[in-house]
Amino acid sequence: MNNSIKYTLFASLLLGATTKAEVPTFTLEIRDHLFYPAQLVVPANTKVKLIIINRDATPEEFESYELNREKIIMGGAKAIIFIGPLLPGDYPFFGEFNPKTAQGLIRVEN
């Protein structure tokens, strides 16, 4: 019993530490099936929080093979995605529901 309380506390501390630590935040918007800005520069070797706001009425799926991320963002909704720590380089992403227009790039720099 005592142990389980300890573990729970430890786990919540760990979770708290990861979520509460200062994580640089960047915002992307989806408008008319396009990402704004289409290119985002983020720091290397750092965990980064992306906030993606879908201003369209239609749903979109943020997807990136390079970042290993995918998330559906319903029309008018906001989504949070954590990425990194990443090595310097270019990481393209796209909207899976509108792959021809909705394209962007995350540039990771030192």
């Binding site: 990861t18 994580v23 965990k47 290993n68 991320r69 998330k71 954590f82």
Partner: peptide, 14 residues
């Protein structure tokens, strides 16, 4: 991957 996406697990170099 889902847990890394919400920041519960940390991603590292592949």
């Amino acid at each position: 991957k889902q847990l890394m996406q919400i920041g519960w697990l940390d991603s590292a170099t592949p």
